[in-house]
Computed example of a mutant assay.
Amino acid sequence: MLMAHPAVLRDLVEQYEALSALHAEDGSPESRQRLNDVAYTLCVSTGTRDVDAALIAARHRLPGARVEDDSLLDAPQEPHTTPVPATEA
């Protein structure tokens, strides 16, 4: 898969965040279309299917990104258990 240049990703993330902050989804047809276009371009540029995953992927590819910055890590996680092999009776 081709990777977008970090400068392009940074610009897309900034555009998406600005449009979201301005509530473009509730605005004029042109502002809604611009938000949809930026979201689509983010998805294509990161190889993802939804904008939330695209934003996470884009941020991970930016200079200075750290593994600890992933918001998915805040989700509750199942405790890790090792499967026990079944014994023959």
Score class of each variant (00 low, 15 high):
Met3Phe: 07
Met3Asn: 09
Ala4Ser: 15
Ala4Glu: 12
Pro6Val: 02
Pro6Met: 03
Pro6His: 01
Arg10Lys: 12
Asp11Ser: 13
Asp11Arg: 12
Leu12Arg: 09
Leu12Thr: 10
Val13Ser: 01
Glu14Ala: 14
Glu14Tyr: 03
Gln15Ser: 11
Glu17Cys: 01
Glu17Lys: 14
Glu17Tyr: 01
Leu19Gln: 09
Leu19Trp: 08
Leu19Ala: 10
Leu19Gly: 08
Leu19Pro: 06
Leu19Lys: 06
Ser20Pro: 00
Leu22Thr: 11
His23Gln: 14
Ala24Trp: 08
Glu25His: 14
Glu25Gly: 11
Asp26Asn: 07
Asp26Val: 02
Ser28Pro: 05
Ser28Val: 02
Ser31Leu: 11
Arg32Glu: 10
Arg32Met: 09
Gln33Lys: 13
Arg34Val: 02
Arg34His: 05
Arg34Gln: 07
Arg34Ala: 14
Arg34Gly: 03
Leu35Tyr: 07
Leu35Ala: 07
Asn36His: 11
Asn36Val: 07
Asp37Ala: 12
Val38Ile: 14
Val38Glu: 00
Ala39Glu: 04
Tyr40Gly: 05
Tyr40Phe: 13
Thr41Tyr: 08
Thr41Leu: 15
Leu42Cys: 06
Val44Glu: 11
Val44Arg: 15
Thr46Val: 04
Gly47Asn: 04
Gly47Phe: 02
Thr48Gln: 04
Thr48Leu: 03
Arg49Met: 07
Asp50Ile: 01
Asp50Trp: 02
Asp52Tyr: 08
Ala54Ser: 08
Leu55Gly: 06
Ile56Asp: 13
Ile56Pro: 00
Ala58Arg: 01
Ala58Ser: 03
Arg59Tyr: 05
His60Ala: 15
His60Thr: 09
His60Ser: 14
His60Glu: 14
Leu62Phe: 05
Pro63Cys: 04
Pro63Thr: 01
Pro63Met: 00
Arg66Phe: 06
Val67Lys: 13
Glu68Asp: 15
Asp69Gly: 09
Asp70Asn: 09
Asp70Lys: 02
Asp74Ala: 14
Asp74Val: 04
Ala75Gln: 12
Ala75Pro: 00
Pro76Ser: 02
Gln77Leu: 10
Pro79Trp: 05
His80Glu: 14
His80Asn: 05
Thr81Trp: 11
Thr81Pro: 00
Thr82Ala: 08
Thr82Leu: 13
Ala86Met: 09
Ala86Trp: 05
Ala86Pro: 12
Ala86Ile: 07
Ala89Asp: 14
